[in-house]
Computed example of a mutant assay.
Amino acid sequence: MRIALLTYSTKPRGGVVHTLALAEALAAAGHDVTVGTLGRGGDEVFFRTVDPRVTMQVVPFPDASPDETVGERIVRSIEALRAGLDLSGFDVVHAQDCISSNACEGAVRTVHHLDTFTTAQLVACHDRAVLEPAALVCVSRSVAAEVLTSYDRSATVIPNGVDAARFTDAAGDGAPAVAARAAWADRLGRYVLAVGGIEPRKGTIDLLRAYDLLRTRGHDDVTLVLAGGETLFDYRPYRAEFDALVRERGIPVTELGVVDDPSLPALVAGAAAFSFVSTKEGFGLAAMEALAAGVPVVARDLPVLREVFGDTVAFAGDVDGIADALESALRDPADPLPGRALATGYSWTAAAAAHVALYDQLLDRSGGAPIGRIRSGAVPA
């Protein structure tokens, strides 16, 4: 089967990580897979090495004026993908996000989570990307239920895979793993880690306030470390609020930015605790990787995270709760074995097989006609 998986960036965001892992698993199963994306910031390749069995289409996406609005950037992204991708000859086109979905017609779309926008242009793009695709996939039952309630559309639930061995190995006793963790410890000391950047959906300010409470309780020997940060959206007001709180309270924070992919497992495995206090999530891949590394996880108390993680993480609903859960994790870490077992149970091989079963159903229904194509006209206003 010839399959095109589409994403919006070459940077290490959750949807991009998902797309690459799924593409590699599909290629390993013998399918002809191409990943199409935008080369942001001059990128010509993805943030990590990709299995050579996967073909790449990286569409150039030059930087624009600093005055470009988020809405304008989104529409320009959609139009760049629409103009730059060659989707001829594919049996199935599968868009992994709102941007790539809007560049297509009649494709499959994975809804990782539902967003909330206030700008009419962004609301329209978001809604089209749920209402127009030929079929929807969600990575959890909770998100599928939200889609059904909000849009009256049913989705096939296919959980993420997890590259658990990569993170379990990083926590192991072998000399390379020990040295890699020690290098982070030398640089950071003992640390609480969050991955994903400083943005409202990640709940970063709640984490900052919780960490400030920890310091007042005698945990000032623990560093707060933030990794990641690439995003399409303009979070400058949120960032300004974060920075103001850091200054006013004198809170020490270490920002690493985007961490090289080979270095990430050791960074995760070396953490004393992992914070995952997002206000919206679809599955929680980063937290699952932390569990695979044996690191205690504190997660926002959301239905989707209750569904995915069960009792393998500590849940918290507010700043005080996050501080309490982090303090417990630091003082008396939970048994890592149940979390590791959970993470190991999710495989990209199984995820790929479930996707192929869906693709086969759609092709049977269409009589073999291709599923998905480039949008025939410009994106509607």
Rank of each mutant, 00 (worst) to 15 (best):
D63Q: 08
A25L: 00
A83Q: 11
A155K: 01
T118M: 09
T279G: 14
A182I: 11
R109Q: 11
I198S: 07
D324C: 12
K202G: 07
G345K: 00
F61P: 02
P380S: 09
G30D: 06
D324R: 12
V50K: 01
A27I: 03
E146K: 09
M1A: 05
P176I: 09
R109G: 07
T344L: 10
R300H: 14
H113Q: 14
L256P: 02
T34S: 06
R300Q: 14
I158V: 15
V246I: 13
E68T: 07
T156A: 15
H219K: 15
L122E: 12
R217K: 10
T37Q: 01
G228L: 10
V162P: 05
F117W: 13
A316W: 00
D91T: 03
G218A: 15
A107L: 09
P336Q: 04
I99F: 13
D301I: 08
E327P: 08
A170R: 02
P333D: 09
V70N: 04
R247M: 14
S142A: 14
F47E: 01
I78D: 00
D186Q: 14
D63G: 05
P12Q: 06
A299M: 08
L232M: 15
G42E: 06
L5H: 05
D332S: 06
R153V: 07
L362Q: 10
Q57I: 10
I251T: 15
P303K: 11
A171M: 03
A369M: 13
V379T: 14
A164C: 02
L256V: 08
D97E: 13
V147Y: 00
A21H: 06
V111T: 02
L264D: 00
G372H: 00
A341P: 02
D243Q: 12
A4E: 00
L85K: 04
G14L: 03
H113N: 12
V277F: 11
L38G: 07
L291Y: 02
A80Y: 01
I158C: 11
Q57G: 09
R375F: 04
